[in-house]
Design a protein around this nucleic acid. Sequence first.
DNA 1: AACTTATTTAATCAAATGATTAAAAATAAG
DNA 2: CTTATTTTTAATCATTTGATTAAATAAGTT
Lengths: 207, 207
Amino acid sequence: MKKTEDIEKNASTEEKIKEAARRVFTQKGYAATRTRDIAAESGYNLALINYYFRSKEKLFEMIMLEHLQLFVHSVMGIVSDPATSLETKIELLISHYIDMLKGNPDLPIFVLSEVNANPAKLLSRLGFSKMKHEKLAFVQQWKELSAKKKLKYNPLHILLNVLSMTIFPFAASPLLRDRTGMSVAEFNALMEERKKLIPMWIHDMLK
Amino acid sequence: MKKTEDIEKNASTEEKIKEAARRVFTQKGYAATRTRDIAAESGYNLALINYYFRSKEKLFEMIMLEHLQLFVHSVMGIVSDPATSLETKIELLISHYIDMLKGNPDLPIFVLSEVNANPAKLLSRLGFSKMKHEKLAFVQQWKELSAKKKLKYNPLHILLNVLSMTIFPFAASPLLRDRTGMSVAEFNALMEERKKLIPMWIHDMLK
DNA sequence: AACTTATTTAATCAAATGATTAAAAATAAG
DNA sequence: CTTATTTTTAATCATTTGATTAAATAAGTT
């Protein structure tokens, strides 16, 4: 039994195992990951993953939750700021995602395929209540825009386009790089260009 | 031993098992698929999957190859036709993919994540030699266009945009439908709209 | 130091899983 | 009908895999 009542953080090893697990899970996915892989990657004994986290699944859920939050909550600051225009928000959002994905290129495939494998379980945890939804500056500005410009189509298309053009290239990057012979650095440079280009294209769609 | 020299097709069961495998593999991915799942889905005994196909891996590779060809070869007819304009090709390509993905919504995540898990192995099989590449009407028209319009950016961005806006929504569909409360039918209707919209947006990008 | 608690390891377990085998059932051939 | 061949099944094997246990080591307290 632990000595202190409050949970003591052996930050060192516990965190190292979690980081190892993050790397392995994110690269191989839940089903293909062996607890032994995580142990090896962390440099610690197999039993420690059950000592610190109760099971493979618990450890996975912990990491998955953090990833989903990385995706969703990190942009809350951007989309809820009433001081910036809609177009500025979109630009910041794209820039933010591209920077984040350059450091975590496996994230899109990982998140999409795990959510696909278990939508109910994972998405319930996201919370992100739909009431608050209405209060976001982003949503308000969005509505004003659709009213004013009277777009001939569902404005959801535009949001889809922003996310598609920003995220998909990372998911397709192994295929793309194979076909074009591009290096990772060249790919990243291409994505860097898109920080300016995507907002421009989206701007034209809103014309 | 088989009676006839040439491989006899017991089309019925062999094909049924392959179809079952296709469903299970595509929905759950290689690592999460159990041979018993395939047996159950097919309605046949577990041993038959090793009787007809030599192993889980062999069966998977067979199916994966078909999927990759579905993605790549099926559009060859479109992109190699010298009689159609570049914009027409793009329109046909988008329409083709949307139709195909409406019937196989799990395909994008499946292909992307399996390619990600094993790029070398899967992409080598694709062939799709790079010499032939140069001979495609699509590529030629593409070059003419980049020369004429002198785009301020790598034209690869446009191809990326076409594929992103067309394919990504299917990959994100579980998440999207959860967040918006959309039904599958509503989602499909949205994608149907995109058959017209994406070519329009791409057209504007080429302006 | 003596004692308690926390961390780490090696060994092992039980269930899951891909594969094989031997026999039964179905089908075809003579 | 009898025999041979192909298809299908139930039972079983060997390995992998997530998890546990008991013991060893390290760290902290008094």
